[in-house]
Design a protein around this nucleic acid. Structure first.
Length: 907
DNA sequence: GTTAAGACTTGGTCAAACTCCG
DNA sequence: CGGAGTTTGACCAAGTCTTAAC
C-alpha cells in the first residue's frame, strides 16, 4: 500500500499513445475504485493537505499520489469509457467518436497537452520517491472535439459541435521537463534538477498536475451531493438587476439545511486522520490546535450557527451513501493510508502547511532555489526629435525616454486626460531641468516620436515568420533560467520573473496618480528571498547588487521591490498559478467556501434577525452581511486619498443607494477597478427600512455604514464560522450557483449542448460578480457584418424558395443577379438547400444574440478565481464532456489539483 | 482599537498567438 | 495565403485580509 506515495511512473508514454482527449467517464467500476483512491488520498492528502503533496512524495502534491494509485485501477474503466461513450449517449457519443480518430494523429505530434504532460512529470518525479507505481495507461478516450468554442449561451446550437476539432492540441507540448526531484522533505539539494528542466521546454505543467486524469478521486469525500445542501441564495436570483440579471429565482430551499443531519452522520470523531476532508479540515485542525482547543469544546461562545456545524462540517460531505459501498474497501485502505501517512508526516507535515496561522508557524517551504529576476534592457535612444513650438528639440537619452513614454500613448484616452498630462509634465520637468526650453505641454508636439513608434511596430509586423521565431528563441534563451524555481525539490514555474519596465503609471478610473513616471527599477531596489543553502542569484547587471537577500520560508515570494508610484507598497515576484504552493491555497480557499455551505443557513437566520436589532452597529453588520451575501459585494476597505475613489460594501456612501418604494434598492457606484455596479434589487422590508434609517440625517457623501468597517465586519463573521471573511461569500455564491445550475440544467444531449449549459451557468456567475469588460472597438462593426450576412442568406433563401416553386411547376429557375442562368435543380435538391440555409441562418442569429449578450460580460475572471474547479471536473466526468472544452491549457495547469476529483463531487 | 505594513488574491486590458474562412 | 475574429497570456493595477506596531 504504498499507495499514497506516488508516483506514477511512466505514464507518459502511455498517454502519449493515446493522445486522445480525455473524456471523463464514470463507470461503476471506476467509481469504486475511485472511492478507494479517494479515500486514500484524502486521508493522506487531506491531512496534510497543505503540505501534503509536496512533502510526501517529495515531488508532487497529493494529487500525484493519488493518481498513481488510481491509475492502476482506473485504467480499465477509462478505457472503457471511450467505448462506452458511444454506447452511452447517442449524440454525445457521436461526437466523441468522431473526434477521436481525427485527433489522434495530431496528437501524436504534439502530444496531449495537459494530460500528457502531467503524466509525464509525474512520472519523472515520482521516480525518485516512488512508492509504487503502477502504470497504467490511462487512457483517454476520445478526444473531444474542440468545439468551437463559441460562446453561445443559450441556444442550443447544434452547430457548434461540428466545428471543431482542433484547436487546442497544440497546447501541449511540453513535456518533459520535469525533472522532478526527489527531494522531498528534507533535503534540500536540488540544483541539478533544475537545470534539466529547462530543457524541456516548456511545459508548464506543474508537477502536481501531472496526474490527474483519472477519474477518481476522492470519492468519499466528495460525495455529498446533496441536494439539499446547497442552498441557493434565493437572493441572487431574485435580483433582477437591472444589469442583466436573469431572473430566475430559486427560492426554494434555503430553508433548512441539511447540515446538521448530515453532519452528524459523518461521525467525526473518527475522522481525524482518516479522512479529513481537506482543507477545511485542516483548517479546523489547525485552529483547534492552536488556539483552540477550547473552542472545540466549548461552543458556548460560538454562535449558534456555528455550533451546528462544528462537528461535522467538512466531513459531512463525505458521508453519504456512496461510501457505503466503498466502505469496506476503504477501510482497508485506510490502514494503508495511515501508515503511509505517518511516514509522510514525518517528513513533511510540519512543513508546508499553509498559512493558516494556527498551525504553528506558517512555514511555506523547506528549500527554495531560483535565479532571481530579469531586468528590462537599458533604454536605446532613437534620436527622433519631437517638436516644441514647431521646432525640433534636442533631448538627452533620459529625457527622450520619458517623452517617448508619453508619445506612444498618444492614441489612448490617457493622453487626453488633464490629470495624466499634469502628472506626466511634473515628472518630466524634473528630468528636463528648470531652465529647459520645454515648459508647456500645449507647445509640445510628440507626433514625430509617435510616428516613429508606429513605424517600428509595422516593421516588426512585417518580419518574416523565421525572423520572428528567431527573435523569440533568443528571448527565451535569455529568460529561461529565470522561468523556474525549485521548491522543496520540485521544479515550479515562476509567475512574473520580469521586473516591471519604466513607464507612465496607468491607474484605472480617475486615479490621482495617473501619468506619473514609474521609474526604472534597479537591482538595488530588489530584495531576494531564497533558501538558506541555495546559491544567491547573481545580479544580472554588472557592478550592481541586490538590496537585500532574505531566507524567509514563511512567505512565498521570491523577490520584491517597492512600488515606485507608491513606495509604501510592494511588487512581488511569486510562483505561477500552476505551482503547488498556489494550488494548495486555492484548494483551501474553496474548502473554506464549502464550509460556509454548512453554516450559511445559520448565518442567514442570524442576520435576518438582526435587521431589526436595537443596536445600530448590529443592524449595520446584519444589513452589510446581507448585501455581501445576496449581491456578492466586496468588503470595501478604506482607501487613501491618493487612490481612485471607489467603494465596496463597508464604504458605500449614502448617494450610492437609492430607496425605490415599496422595497427596492438601486445601487449605483464604482467598485474595484472603477467598474460601475448598477443594480436594482428587491429586498426584504426590514432591510429596506434599515437602509432608510442609515441614510437619514446624513449627507450624500457620508458613509452609509458609519459604524462599520471591514475589520469589524470580518471579526463578526469569524465568530460565525472559523476563518470566515467577506470574500468567502463571493466564492461560495459563485461556486454554489455553478453547481446548482449545472445539475439542474444539464440534459441529455451532445457535448456541444452541454457546453452551452456550462457557459450559461458561467455567464450567470459572471453577472452575479459583476465581471465586466469593455465592448470591443469592433463590436458594432462585427454586429452589422453579421446582420448583413444574415440578410444575404435570407435573400438567398427567398431565391431558393422561388426556384423551388417554379421547379415544382416544371419551370426553370430565374436568372441570378448577374443575369446568369442558374443551374436547374430538382425540387428535392432545392429543398435540401433550403434546409441547409435555414440552419445556417439560425445558427448565425444565435451567434449574434450571444455576442450581443456577452459583449459586456467577462466569463474568464470567475472561472479563474471563483468557481471551484472540482465542480467543473466532476461535471465533465459525469457527463462525458472532455475537460478541455471547459478549461484551456493554463487553467488545466492551474487546476491540476482538482483533476482527480470524484465524479460525484458536489460543491 | 487604530493604523500601518506586509502578503496574497482578484481583475481588466492589450497585444500576441491562434483559428477560421474565403 | 491573408485578413478578420477569437482566445490566450502577459502585465500590472487594485482589491482583501492578517499581523505587527503604536
Amino acid at each position: 500500500m504504498a499507495v499514497q506515495a506516488c508516483v506514477k511512473p511512466k505514464m507518459f508514454d502511455d498517454i502519449d499513445d493515446d493522445d486522445e482527449p480525455i473524456v471523463f467517464k464514470r463507470s461503476n467500476t471506476t467509481s469504486r475504485q475511485n472511492l478507494l483512491n479517494s479515500e486514500i488520498k484524502k486521508s493522506s492528502s487531506q491531512r496534510h493537505d497543505g503540505q501534503s503533496g509536496r512533502q510526501v512524495s517529495g515531488v508532487h502534491s497529493s494529487n500525484g499520489q493519488n493518481s498513481s494509485a488510481q491509475k492502476g485501477k482506473t485504467v480499465p474503466s477509462a478505457k472503457s469509457s471511450a467505448v462506452k461513450s458511444s454506447a452511452a449517449g447517442p449524440e454525445a457519443s457521436t461526437s466523441s467518436a468522431k473526434a477521436a480518430p481525427v485527433k489522434s494523429p495530431l496528437a501524436n505530434s504534439k502530444g496531449l497537452p495537459s494530460l500528457a504532460d502531467r503524466s509525464d512529470h509525474s512520472s519523472k518525479q515520482n521516480t525518485s520517491i516512488v512508492v509504487k507505481q503502477e502504470k497504467h495507461p490511462i487512457k483517454q478516450p476520445a478526444k473531444p472535439i474542440s468545439d468551437s468554442e463559441d460562446s453561445e449561451d443559450d441556444k442550443p446550437l447544434s452547430a457548434r459541435l461540428s466545428a471543431g476539432l482542433s484547436k487546442k492540441n497544440s497546447n501541449n507540448a511540453n513535456k518533459g521537463l520535469s525533472t522532478p526531484t526527489p527531494s522531498s522533505s528534507q533535503a534540500p539539494k536540488p540544483k541539478i534538477i533544475v537545470k534539466k528542466s529547462s530543457e524541456d521546454s516548456d511545459d508548464e505543467v506543474p508537477l502536481s498536475s501531472k496526474f490527474q486524469m483519472k477519474s477518481n478521486a476522492g470519492a468519499s469525500a466528495s460525495k455529498s451531493y446533496d441536494s439539499d445542501g446547497k442552498k441557493p441564495l434565493a437572493s441572487k436570483l431574485q435580483q433582477n438587476g437591472s444589469i442583466m440579471r436573469v431572473n430566475q429565482q430559486k427560492s426554494p430551499t434555503v430553508l433548512n439545511k441539511r447540515p446538521l443531519d448530515k453532519i452528524n452522520s459523518s461521525g467525526q470523531s473518527s475522522v481525524k486522520k482518516p479522512k479529513l476532508s481537506n482543507a477545511s479540515q485542516s483548517i479546523k485542525d489547525k485552529q483547534v490546535s492552536v488556539k483552540a482547543e477550547p473552542k472545540a469544546d466549548d461552543d458556548d461562545h460560538i454562535p449558534i450557527a456555528q455550533r451546528m456545524k462544528k462537528s461535522g462540517s467538512s466531513d459531512s460531505k463525505s458521508l453519504p451513501a456512496k461510501q457505503k459501498v466503498t466502505k469496506v474497501v476503504s477501510s482497508s485502505f485506510k490502514k494503508t493510508t495511515k501508515k503511509s501517512k505517518k511516514v509522510t508526516k514525518k517528513s513533511k507535515y510540519s512543513k508546508s502547511t499553509k498559512m493558516l496561522p494556527s498551525s504553528g508557524e506558517g512555514q511555506k517551504w523547506n528549500t527554495l532555489v531560483h535565479n532571481g529576476v530579469i531586468f528590462p534592457p537599458p533604454y536605446k535612444p532613437h534620436g527622433v526629435k519631437m517638436l516644441y513650438k514647431g521646432k525640433p528639440v534636442d533631448l538627452t537619452p533620459q529625457q527622450e525616454e520619458v517623452a517617448t513614454m508619453f508619445a506612444v500613448m498618444l492614441d489612448t484616452d490617457y493622453a487626453k486626460k488633464d490629470k495624466f498630462i499634469e502628472n506626466f509634465m511634473n515628472d518630466w520637468r524634473k528630468i528636463l531641468g528648470r531652465n529647459h526650453v520645454i515648459q508647456k505641454f500645449n507647445d509640445c508636439d510628440f507626433s514625430p516620436i509617435y510616428e516613429w513608434h508606429q513605424n517600428e511596430k509595422e516593421k516588426k509586423k512585417q518580419m518574416s515568420t523565421e525572423e520572428k521565431k528567431a527573435l523569440k528563441e533568443e528571448k527565451l534563451k535569455l529568460e529561461e533560467k529565470y522561468m523556474w524555481a525549485v521548491v522543496d525539490g520540485v521544479k515550479e514555474k515562476v509567475g512574473n520573473f520580469r521586473v516591471e519596465p519604466p513607464g507612465l503609471f496607468r491607474g484605472r478610473g480617475e486615479h490621482p496618480k495617473m501619468g506619473k513616471l514609474k521609474r526604472r527599477i534597479r537591482p538595488n531596489d530588489i530584495t531576494i528571498n531564497i533558501g538558506k543553502n541555495a546559491p544567491i542569484p547573481e545580479c544580472p547587471i554588472p557592478g550592481e547588487s541586490w538590496k537585500e537577500v532574505r531566507h524567509d520560508n514563511t512567505v512565498t515570494w521570491l523577490a520584491f521591490w517597492n512600488d515606485p508610484i507608491n513606495p509604501k507598497e510592494f511588487k512581488y515576484v511569486f510562483l505561477a498559478a500552476s505551482s503547488s504552493l498556489k494550488g494548495q491555497s486555492d484548494k483551501e480557499k474553496y474548502e473554506k467556501a464549502r464550509m460556509l455551505k454548512d453554516y450559511i443557513q445559520g448565518i442567514r437566520a442570524a442576520y435576518t434577525k438582526d435587521f431589526v436589532s436595537k443596536d445600530i452597529t448590529k443592524r449595520q453588520i446584519a444589513v452589510a452581511t446581507y448585501l455581501i451575501d445576496k449581491l456578492a459585494l466586496r468588503a470595501g476597505n478604506e482607501k487613501d486619498d491618493d487612490e481612485a475613489d471607489t467603494v465596496g460594501c463597508c464604504t458605500l456612501k449614502v448617494e450610492n443607494v437609492k430607496c425605490r418604494p415599496p422595497n427596492k434598492l438601486e445601487f449605483d457606484f464604482l467598485g474595484k477597478d472603477s467598474i460601475r455596479y448598477n443594480n436594482v434589487v428587491e429586498v426584504e422590508i426590514p432591510v429596506y427600512k434599515a437602509i432608510g434609517q442609515f441614510q437619514t440625517g446624513k449627507g450624500e457623501s457620508d458613509d452609509l455604514f458609519d459604524k462599520l468597517d471591514t475589520s469589524k465586519l470580518n471579526a463578526h463573521l469569524k465568530e460565525l464560522m472559523p476563518g470566515l471573511t467577506a470574500k468567502v461569500f463571493r466564492t461560495y455564491n459563485a461556486s454554489i450557483t455553478l453547481d446548482e445550475m449545472l445539475s439542474r440544467d444539464t440534459k441529455d444531449g451532445n457535448v456541444g449542448e452541454k457546453v452551452v449549459v456550462y457557459q450559461h451557468a458561467n455567464k450567470e456567475v459572471a453577472i452575479i460578480c459583476n465581471h465586466q469588460r469593455t465592448i470591443s472597438k469592433s463590436h458594432a462593426a462585427q454586429m452589422s457584418r453579421l446582420t448583413e450576412k444574415i440578410d444575404e442568406l435570407k435573400g438567398i433563401l427567398d431565391g431558393l424558395k422561388t426556384d423551388l416553386s417554379r421547379a415544382r411547376k416544371g419551370k426553370p429557375p430565374l436568372k441570378d443577379a448577374d443575369g446568369k442562368q442558374k443551374r436547374n435543380l430538382t425540387p428535392e435538391a432545392l429543398e435540401r438547400k433550403i434546409a441547409q440555409t435555414d440552419a445556417k441562418i439560425e445558427k448565425m442569429e444565435r451567434d449574434k444574440n450571444t455576442k450581443e449578450d456577452l459583449k459586456t460580460v467577462a466569463l474568464g475572471t470567475s472561472k479563474i478565481n471563483y468557481l471551484d474547479p472540482r465542480i467543473s471536473v466532476a461535471w465533465c466526468k459525469r457527463h462525458e464532456v472532455p475537460i478541455e472544452k471547459i478549461f484551456n491549457k493554463s487553467l488545466l495547469a492551474k487546476f491540476a489539483w482538482a483533476m482527480d476529483v470524484d465524479p460525484s463531487f458536489r460543491f
